[in-house]
Amino acid sequence: MSTIDDDSDPATEVLDVRKHEGPPFPLIEEALEELPPGGSLTLVNSFEPEPLYDVLDDRGFSYRTERVDEGEWRVHIEHA
């Protein structure tokens, strides 16, 4: 899992897929599968990953999205 500098909760995993070559969904899928109940993940992407929202809803994850900057979106995901 790629990481970036992040001052949020140190228990939160950070997955930065901005420089990943190829589709990022397999990396995101793997990170979600490994996320334990009560765990959290911050996904960093260069665009708003709207198709991911249905996947998160279907799997019972809660999330909030923020646009940090042009070209940087963060989706904060929590596993219930």
Rank of each mutant, 00 (worst) to 15 (best):
M1G: 14
M1T: 11
M1N: 06
M1Q: 08
M1E: 06
S2Y: 07
I4W: 04
D5G: 04
D5V: 09
D5R: 10
D5L: 11
D6R: 01
D7P: 01
S8H: 10
S8T: 10
D9C: 04
D9G: 03
P10E: 02
P10K: 04
P10Y: 03
P10H: 04
E13S: 11
E13Y: 00
E13V: 04
E13L: 10
E13N: 04
V14K: 03
V14T: 13
L15V: 05
V17W: 06
V17I: 15
V17Y: 06
K19V: 05
H20F: 11
H20W: 09
E21W: 05
E21Q: 14
E21A: 14
G22K: 08
G22Y: 10
P23E: 15
P24K: 03
P24S: 13
F25K: 03
F25T: 08
P26Q: 10
P26E: 11
P26G: 08
L27G: 05
L27A: 13
I28P: 00
I28E: 01
I28L: 08
E30I: 00
A31R: 07
A31G: 07
L32M: 07
L32F: 05
E33N: 13
E34V: 00
E34R: 14
E34Y: 00
L35Q: 02
L35S: 03
P36Y: 05
P36N: 06
P37R: 08
G39D: 05
G39T: 06
S40P: 01
S40W: 01
T42D: 00
L43T: 04
L43P: 01
L43N: 04
V44C: 12
N45E: 07
S46D: 15
S46Y: 09
S46H: 14
F47Q: 08
E48G: 09
E48T: 03
E48H: 14
E48K: 14
E48S: 10
E48C: 12
P49A: 14
P49M: 12
P49I: 06
P51S: 09
P51Q: 09
Y53Q: 08
Y53L: 12
Y53F: 15
Y53A: 03
D54K: 11
V55W: 03
D58Y: 03
D58N: 14
D58E: 15
R59M: 05
R59W: 08
G60H: 08
G60L: 07
G60Y: 09
F61A: 02
F61Q: 04
S62I: 08
S62T: 15
R64Q: 13
R64N: 11
T65V: 15
T65Q: 06
E66N: 09
R67A: 14
R67Q: 15
R67H: 11
V68A: 12
D69T: 14
D69F: 04
E70V: 14
E70H: 12
G71I: 07
W73D: 00
W73N: 02
W73A: 02
R74P: 00
R74L: 02
R74T: 02
R74H: 13
V75Q: 03
V75M: 14
H76L: 10
E78N: 06
E78R: 12
A80G: 13
